[in-house]
């Protein structure tokens, strides 16, 4: 079979269910539930850090998570400090936060602040442990961090209830290694499919308090906050592509074993 025939099958498996919407129920996994419960249990006026450590290549999986997390935080009066260790994620994060803030009526500087990007992941994380404003002297729009109302009582990680790392690379391990170990900062993560498996050892030890796993996790979170959006829509379409790929693997193996039997 020509590889391009497989490509057409894949395209059809995406396009057809997208045009004719399908709604299958999504069950919530324990790691996602844990993160949701953790945020729900935070007292109002708590502050969390949301790290947008990804670029456009991972927005399909991580943007839906970011939106749900921001919606939950704004609904619960949990203040959000957003930042990124990835230069490519800066404009992406800025646009996304503004979109959800407008939707929820959250005020810049009071309910949330976007600090932007700083190069040098390890030193940024360690520097913020001593004094956030020593690393982010201003926010992304240029306002002095110390003059931002919601930052008045915040010096370092001691005043932060949770850090959620939205990651497409190794940033979660870096946050765990430096912020959790050195400063006892509680950490949770929302990650792309590629790195889900490697997060589980940290989940079992409690170094991660919760985990949102790829587009499935995003759909689970949308169900938890009861705001169905792209995550729910896309995981349903994903069902058909996975069925196709499983079918292709099975077909490929049947052909392979038939050929081998004939050769023997």
């Amino acid at each position: 079979m020509d590889r391009r025939f497989v490509y057409i099958l894949v395209a059809l498996a995406v396009i057809i269910p997208m045009l004719f919407r399908v709604n299958l129920p999504v069950s919530v996994s324990e790691p996602t539930q844990k993160l949701y419960d953790y945020i729900e249990a935070l007292p109002s006026d708590s502050t969390i850090i949301l790290a947008f450590d990804y670029g456009p290549s991972s927005l399909a999986e991580l943007n839906p998570m970011a939106k749900s997390l921001l919606r939950q935080c704004f609904d619960n009066d949990v203040r959000v400090i957003a930042l990124t260790l990835y230069p490519d994620g800066t404009t992406l994060a800025s646009t996304l936060i503004q979109e959800i803030a407008e939707e929820k009526g959250a005020v810049d500087g009071e309910d949330y602040v976007f600090l932007g990007f700083r190069p040098g992941a390890t030193q940024v994380i360690l520097g913020m442990g001593s004094d956030i404003s020593s690393v982010f002297e201003t926010d992304y729009s240029g306002k002095a961090t110390t003059e931002i109302p919601m930052m008045k009582d915040i010096t370092n990680y001691a005043q932060i209830s949770l850090l959620i790392d939205l990651a497409s690379g190794s940033s979660t391990e870096v946050w765990i290694t430096y912020a959790n170990v050195q400063y006892n900062l509680q950490i949770a993560a929302g990650v792309t499919g590629v790195i889900i498996s490697q997060m589980y050892p940290y989940l079992q030890t409690g170094q991660l308090v919760g985990l949102i796993s790829g587009i499935l996790g995003a759909a689970e979170y949308e169900r938890l906050i009861d705001v169905p959006a792209k995550g729910m829509l896309w995981i349903n379409i994903e069902s058909f592509v996975h069925l196709l790929i499983v079918g292709l693997v099975v077909a490929g193996n049947i052909i392979f074993f038939n050929q081998r039997r004939r050769e023997e």
Partner: peptide, 16 residues
């Protein structure tokens, strides 16, 4: 292969 197939089906609602 078997693990990959199980995880793939477990990752989508149609699996359940």
């Amino acid at each position: 292969l078997i693990t990959a197939l199980i995880v793939m089906m477990g990752n989508v609602p149609v699996g359940d």
